[in-house]
Design a binder for these strands. Structure first.
Length: 275
DNA sequence: GTGCAGGTCAGCT
DNA sequence: AGCTGACCTGCA
């Protein structure tokens, strides 16, 4: 993809495979806000503001290298979209979310965020995550995502106060089950074994595991099945109740591009309901 | 007041 | 193994 890296920004010239609204609103990430016409995104302890120009999008940031990787700019999405476009069910979703890219997100942040996402709504998920950031805003620069060590110092009541509800005990437990380095080491596992490892963690079931696999570990051969995907599936395929069955059938069809297909389908399906 | 939101878990057959 | 009900809580 065509882009150029500067000291204080990246300019992305190919608007056909980079659209901040598509990328950030397609459900893979919670650490962003829309400010008037622009999007800001704040993963880990980083920050970027995305501004549209006539011939490009500018990613304004102090850490261009970080965001070059974060937005996976080296990957050519025209190839991915091309191989998916022959599938009838994906035609409209691809047209609608043409600028989607799957972000390369921090493993720990992704794990915590998607544990909180379970049986929850996006507004409240963002509220809770902001509460967690706010609790450490004096010791961190800006409002960074807290580290495992920082969260480990808190008790279950802290997470309840932050609005986590019954997920508070999951967080308390999972912080004692795993650290950042162990997560990194999991990269060497194949997708199936890695998924089993993740499901052992508190608050992590099949759906959350698939989200961490896709958005954190960059595994394309998974298909997170949530209420929206299930709704879509039962609309276009032979209706099924069991989510694992739906998942297996979809992975059978989409193979190593399952995760990508999921994002286009999710974004398109949800657009009908969302205001 | 009622119902829902990117599900997971414990307890049952 | 596979199924079922309970579950925090902010917001519409």
């Amino acid at each position: 993809m065509l882009y150029k890296k500067f000291d204080d920004k990246i300019e992305v010239y190919d608007k056909s495979q980079f659209n901040p609204e598509h990328i950030l609103e397609c459900g893979q990430v919670f650490c962003f806000d829309k400010q008037e016409e622009n999007y800001v995104v704040f993963p880990e302890d980083k920050f970027a503001k995305i501004v549209e120009k006539e011939n490009c999008y500018q990613i304004l940031t102090e850490t261009p290298d970080y965001f070059e990787n974060y937005f996976d700019l080296k990957t050519d999405y025209s190839k991915i979209k091309n191989s998916l476009s022959s599938i009838e069910i994906l035609k409209k979703p691809l047209e609608f979310g043409y600028g989607i890219r799957i972000l390369k997100q921090n493993l720990f942040e992704t794990l915590i965020s998607f544990i909180i996402s379970a049986n929850n709504n996006i507004k409240r998920i963002k509220l809770i995550l902001n509460n967690l950031r706010k609790a450490f805003e004096n010791e961190n620069k800006r409002k960074s995502f807290p580290t495992r060590a920082q969260l480990l110092s808190k008790d279950e009541e802290f997470f309840k106060q932050a609005g986590c509800g019954y997920r508070a005990s999951y967080l308390y437990k999972v912080l004692r089950q795993i650290d950042e380095q162990t997560l990194e080491n999991y990269q060497s596992l194949d997708t199936k074994s890695l998924r089993e490892k993740l499901i052992e963690l508190a608050g992590v079931g099949p759906k959350v595991a698939d989200c961490v696999l896709l958005f954190g570990f960059g595994r394309g051969d998974v298909f997170p099945v949530d209420t929206w995907i299930k709704q879509m599936y039962n609309q276009f395929y032979q209706p099924l109740e069991n989510r694992e069955q739906i998942r297996n059938n979809l992975i059978n069809q989409f193979g190593v591009l399952s995760g990508y297909a999921q994002q286009y389908l999710f974004y398109y399906q949800r657009s009908f309901i969302k205001k």
